Computed example of a mutant assay.
Amino acid sequence: MSKPALINAFEITSDGTAHPIDWEDLQSGLPSMTEGRYLWVHLDWMGDGVRDWLISIAGLDATIADTLSTRGTRPAVFFYDTGYSLNLRGVNLNAHNDPADMISVRFWVTANMVITLRNQSLKAFDDIRAAIASHKAPGSVDDFVLTVAERLAYRVENVVRGMEEDVETIEDDQENVVEGKTRSLRKRGSDIRHRLSRLRRHLGPQRDALANYVEQKPSWSDKRFKRRARALTDKTARLVEEFDSLRERIQIVNENLMAIESEQMNRTMYWLTVIAGLFLPISFVTGLLGINVGGLPATDSPYGFLGVSVILAVITAFEIWLFKKMRLI
């Protein structure tokens, strides 16, 4: 395994203190862990030699190593005789990135070791390193996994709150939108709905993975951790429900905006039809009098134009009266 593939490695004790391990020490084998200690190895799964290290040094089966170091994984949990693998997703809060481009986080967990893998920086692991620096690291393997998962959910929740505020702003703006000016508002709603769909695509399976994790995990080092895992599962389920609720609200806003546009179009077409109806008899009369044949009345009379104008005015007045009587205008 190359040095860039290793992000950090620590030997962590139950009292929250940790000791760093150099990457050279991980080339010949894993250090033995006494009771009350566990090993955390944090890797970039796109680094060179990660798969080979997982197989030859960490002792993982090739299929498990493939699950941990391949592209396109989805949130899931798999239990084996020697440990379990857990795949989760976290929002991308790196600069110039969309939070909806969620980052894959992979865990391999045994009784005294946690191997984590990711391909982009994640704030959840920054929190763990900050806890290590203050000598408050998670005291056990279960505590470590749950702490990371909770930090992932916390930041997803923050993103959801921000999107909820955006949806509320759009809902307020639609009340005062000018007819014919709804395009920008619909574009904003479409962007939010697209982001919600991308987040929901990963959070749905993550909810199921966490539920399976709680129910199928063979043992817990402390019953409190199982309660934390259940609370985390419930929180993730609520986030998924909020995603669905926000998408429905955006859909309602979009339907309202489309109704405004449709109403404006219908009103425009209606008035065009009324105007066309008013001018149809007048156009017929002027067209009839404009044909180039002999015998047209009043062609030599100085009052011919005035007479035709009076007739057209009478026809127009009659049409207006008739349209009002029929409640067309």
Results as ranks from 00 to 15, higher is better:
residue 4 P to Y: 11
residue 8 N to M: 02
residue 11 E to N: 13
residue 12 I to M: 13
residue 17 T to P: 04
residue 17 T to H: 12
residue 20 P to V: 09
residue 21 I to P: 10
residue 22 D to N: 15
residue 26 L to V: 05
residue 27 Q to R: 15
residue 34 T to N: 12
residue 35 E to S: 11
residue 40 W to E: 08
residue 42 H to A: 14
residue 42 H to W: 05
residue 43 L to Q: 06
residue 47 G to D: 08
residue 52 D to W: 02
residue 56 S to D: 14
residue 57 I to T: 15
residue 58 A to Q: 05
residue 61 D to P: 04
residue 61 D to H: 15
residue 62 A to E: 14
residue 62 A to V: 11
residue 66 D to G: 01
residue 68 L to R: 09
residue 70 T to S: 15
residue 71 R to N: 10
residue 81 D to E: 15
residue 84 Y to V: 01
residue 91 V to A: 14
residue 96 H to F: 09
residue 97 N to Y: 11
residue 105 V to S: 08
residue 108 W to R: 04
residue 122 L to V: 10
residue 123 K to H: 10
residue 131 A to Y: 06
residue 132 I to L: 11
residue 136 K to C: 14
residue 136 K to W: 00
residue 145 V to T: 02
residue 149 A to V: 11
residue 150 E to R: 09
residue 165 E to P: 00
residue 168 E to W: 07
residue 169 T to G: 04
residue 174 Q to L: 14
residue 176 N to P: 02
residue 180 G to P: 06
residue 181 K to Q: 15
residue 183 R to E: 14
residue 183 R to Q: 14
residue 191 D to Q: 11
residue 194 H to W: 05
residue 200 R to I: 01
residue 200 R to H: 12
residue 202 H to D: 13
residue 210 L to E: 02
residue 212 N to W: 09
residue 215 E to I: 07
residue 215 E to D: 14
residue 215 E to G: 06
residue 216 Q to M: 12
residue 216 Q to L: 14
residue 226 K to M: 06
residue 233 T to H: 14
residue 234 D to H: 07
residue 235 K to R: 15
residue 239 L to V: 07
residue 243 F to E: 04
residue 249 R to V: 00
residue 253 V to H: 01
residue 255 E to P: 01
residue 258 M to E: 10
residue 266 N to F: 02
residue 275 I to M: 13
residue 276 A to P: 08
residue 276 A to L: 00
residue 282 I to P: 09
residue 285 V to G: 04
residue 285 V to I: 14
residue 290 G to T: 03
residue 295 G to Q: 04
residue 296 L to M: 15
residue 305 F to V: 05
residue 315 I to Q: 02
residue 317 A to M: 07
residue 321 W to G: 03
residue 323 F to Y: 12
residue 324 K to W: 05
residue 328 L to C: 03
